[in-house]
């Protein structure tokens, strides 16, 4: 086995078996595609990025170890592909062109959450979240997290994911998306407000009862 690495706990032939698990691969592909489509609005480009990431993972399978880490690894390949794409294309659909989408967003959301005097509406005050340790590792939590992300208006989701998942910095996002720094900051604020509320309503509060 080449590329011997101390962290390798599984030989590459076993790793290749990951690709034989059709259910796992299909599920992973779906997640990757969803992730890619949020970033790259062109479906074909998104598909292509996922294909390439999968293929590149397959070719370099001996570089990685355990199946538990497989997703991380494939996603990191995909992330780089998307960042490349975004840089190359310099926005296929600039965030500024995206709809804010249904549900409360923008000012309406702010009005819903805060009183006129700028304080929290009584019912909307953030509650204490339980220590996430007990729950966030499980599939169910991530399904809710996904649903909350999906529920974000397209523009929010895209900028939020660029910042938090692709870990792009402010100048780069602003350049790619043709948005001003202050507009980016406000959008991220609103995205986090929405996401926070969604997670609290569907996970952190439910857990308590």
């Amino acid at each position: 086995m080449s590329n011997a690495n101390l962290s390798v706990e599984m030989d590459s032939s076993a790793a290749v078996n990951v690709f034989q698990d059709a259910v796992f691969i299909e599920e992973l592909r779906t997640q990757m595609l969803k992730f890619a489509k949020l970033q790259v609005r062109d479906n074909q480009l998104a598909e292509a990025a996922v294909q390439e990431a999968m293929f590149s993972a397959y070719q370099n399978i001996d570089r990685f170890a355990r199946q538990a880490a497989f997703k991380t690894w494939v996603f990191s390949i995909l992330k780089n592909k998307i960042i490349d794409l975004l840089r190359k294309e310099k926005r296929h659909t600039a965030a500024s062109q995206l709809e804010e989408g249904p549900n409360l967003s923008g000012e309406a959301l702010i009005e819903h959450l805060f009183e006129e005097n700028g304080h929290w509406q009584k019912d909307e005050r953030p509650k204490k979240w339980d220590q996430p340790e007990h729950g966030v590792e499980n599939e169910h939590f991530w399904r809710i997290f996904d649903a909350c992300l999906d529920a974000l208006p397209a523009k929010y989701g895209r900028l939020f994911m660029m910042r938090e998942f692709l870990e792009m910095d402010t100048p780069e996002i602003c350049h790619n998306e043709d948005v001003s720094v202050s507009s980016l900051n406000v959008t991220l604020y609103r995205a986090r407000l929405r996401l926070r509320e969604c997670l609290e309503d569907h996970w952190f509060q439910k857990e308590k009862s």
Partner: peptide
């Protein structure tokens, strides 16, 4: 509430960081 909010902002950031990491196959 705002103190909670501040903590939750950081939690959301950490969660996002582990988004691609925590998703294990069944």
């Amino acid at each position: 509430p705002c103190r909670q909010f501040g903590k939750q902002m950081e939690t959301i950031r950490e969660l996002s960081k582990s988004y691609t990491k925590a998703k294990k196959p069944d």
